[in-house]
């Protein structure tokens, strides 16, 4: 990456959607990510699995700059995240610029994090109106379409407290999609759900994957990973232990730690 153009030059079609090069992250003396290098192609679905505390979620949060890297480089769609590069130097981005980058990266949280004082529809409409400044009527139509797409057309005027966990998470997905992101990050989207509600959320995500969305999913749902993911990454202790085709990794793990982990969750 030697072009010094600061504006997001038209991304090359062959550039990976996400490129992480020796990404490290420490909280104080605690090194959570140790030199992670990963590549996610356009339209690819990557599942991140591993025991808790392995750094999966931290890595995900680094991608949209909710966490700041300690070392390494991370770019999305050919654009460096959180920094501008000019004349061979890195400049920290102003909050406004960082916010602009986040617009194109959708994120779905384990605990949904819907805005409780807004209805499902208002939750979906908020960002397109406030951030993109789109006209309200147009946004509302798009928001209703999105809610219909996640199967919640009749729940548009309900407050999150009156929706089940699965419904809330589907609203959260619709809220992220409303910004028309080019990349979706899922941080254990089904871990806070009752077992019987997991399926409805995974179904929405499968549909999304089929539509060609680039997705990075931190999950414990191995069935979903095997069915939907193009690649599977097993992380432990802040490093990538094993990565590759989900079927191969799941059925024939090479590394001892992967074998030990899979024997417990499969």
């Amino acid at each position: 990456m030697n072009d010094t153009n600061t504006t997001a030059a038209a991304p090359r079609k062959d550039a990976p959607m996400v490129l992480a090069e020796q990404v490290s992250k420490s909280f104080g003396s605690n090194e959570v990510l140790k030199s992670i290098s990963l590549e996610v192609k356009r339209g690819e679905v990557m599942c991140l699995v591993g025991p808790s505390g392995s750094g999966k979620s931290t890595f995900l949060r680094c991608i949209n700059h909710l966490e700041v890297l300690s070392a390494g480089r991370l770019s999305v769609d050919g654009e460096l995240i959180g920094y501008r590069e000019a004349n061979g130097k890195l400049y920290e981005m102003a909050p406004k610029e960082a916010a602009k980058q986040r617009r194109d990266i959708g994120m779905v949280f384990q605990r949904f994090n819907l805005f409780p004082h807004m209805t499902a529809l208002q939750n979906v409409m908020e960002a397109p109106i406030r951030v993109k400044g789109l006209p309200k009527a147009q946004v509302e139509q798009a928001a209703r379409d999105l809610l219909a797409r996640v199967g919640l057309a009749e729940r548009a005027d309900y407050y999150p407290a009156h929706l089940s966990g699965g419904q809330q998470q589907r609203v959260a997905i619709a809220r992220a999609l409303a910004m028309e992101p080019k990349l979706m990050l899922f941080d254990e989207p089904t871990s806070a759900l009752d077992p019987e509600l997991v399926g409805e959320v995974l179904d929405v995500m499968k549909g999304l994957a089929k539509s060609g969305m680039t997705m990075i999913v931190v999950t414990h749902e191995m069935g979903f990973a095997r069915e939907v993911a193009d690649s599977l990454v097993f992380m432990d202790g802040g490093v990538v232990v094993e990565a590759g085709d989900p079927d191969l990794v799941l059925t024939n793990p090479q590394h001892r730690r992967t074998q030990a982990f899979l024997s417990k969750v499969l």
């Binding site: 909710l66 909050p95 916010a99 986040r102 617009r103 994120m107 949280f109 908020e126 960002a127 992220a176």
Partner: peptide, 10 residues
């Protein structure tokens, strides 16, 4: 975090 991730300003 949710608001920030949506690109909303402070």
């Amino acid at each position: 975090e949710a608001a920030t991730a949506l690109g909303m300003s402070w």
